[in-house]
């Protein structure tokens, strides 16, 4: 432990010596844009839809009344017979599916999760300009492993209230104290001759349901 303390002191001393007498850095100008998109919920939602689809998420829209049927349809279409259920997911969302529910209470082991076909979650917010869903582990989202190990992720976004235009508008709404996962399309790799392949370790299929309330 003495060693660790001395390494800390040594590094800090070297840092201080290295910049001693250096001029102050110029102030940071934040004259970049807060958003690149018109402040119109329909346009922002349209952009989110487009950008999600551009990165190979499968995007669907429904009014609130059609959600349960659409969730059931997506699960069935992908052949999902079991679905992981995060704590706090509204019962109504799974009301129409006959997939076996696997609640995460008590916590499913990684091996159990590996044997489950799908997971249905909500999200904390969605960012239109980048086609990104952000999950913060809140109610209806669960811990991070739930949306990672099963091969199909069905994510529900409530519009317009959960949709923001840009990264600068998203950050102030997020709590850094919670584990955050930003998801922009299904997992992908371009490591082999830069050919993009969707689906490596995360869910290979990402279905996004935009629930449009007005």
């Amino acid at each position: 432990m003495t060693d660790a303390v001395s390494a800390r002191e040594r590094i800090l001393a070297r840092v201080r010596a290295a910049v001693a007498g250096a001029p102050e850095a110029p102030a940071v100008d934040r004259d970049y844009r807060t958003s690149h998109t018109a402040d119109d919920p329909a346009a922002v939602l349209g952009l989110l839809h487009e950008n999600l689809a551009d990165y190979r998420a499968h995007v669907h829209r429904t009014a609130p009344g059609g959600l349960a049927a659409l969730v059931a349809e997506r699960l069935a279409e992908r052949g999902a017979r079991s679905v992981a259920v995060p704590p706090g997911l509204p019962d109504a969302w799974l009301a129409a599916t006959d997939a076996v529910r696997r609640p995460d209470e008590p916590r499913l082991t990684p091996y159990e999760l590996d044997g489950i076909d799908a997971v249905v979650t909500g999200c904390a917010l969605a960012i239109a300009e980048t086609g990104t869903l952000v999950l913060d582990g809140g109610p209806g989202q669960g811990r991070r492993a739930l949306t990672l190990v099963p091969d199909l992720h069905v994510c529900v976004v409530l519009a317009p209230e959960q949709v923001v235009a840009s990264v600068p508008l998203a950050l102030p709404l997020l709590d850094p104290g919670r584990p955050l996962t930003w998801i922009s399309g299904p997992s992908a790799t371009s490591d082999i001759e830069l050919d993009r392949v969707e689906g490596v370790h995360g869910p290979r299929t990402l279905e996004v349901i935009l629930v449009v309330s007005r």
């Binding site: 584990p179 955050l180 996962t181 930003w182 992908a188």
Partner: peptide, 14 residues
């Protein structure tokens, strides 16, 4: 890309 597929952020342990 506009955004890479996954970004993880964590603070200590949860």
């Amino acid at each position: 890309e506009r955004m890479n597929p996954y970004t993880s952020m964590w603070t200590g342990t949860a």
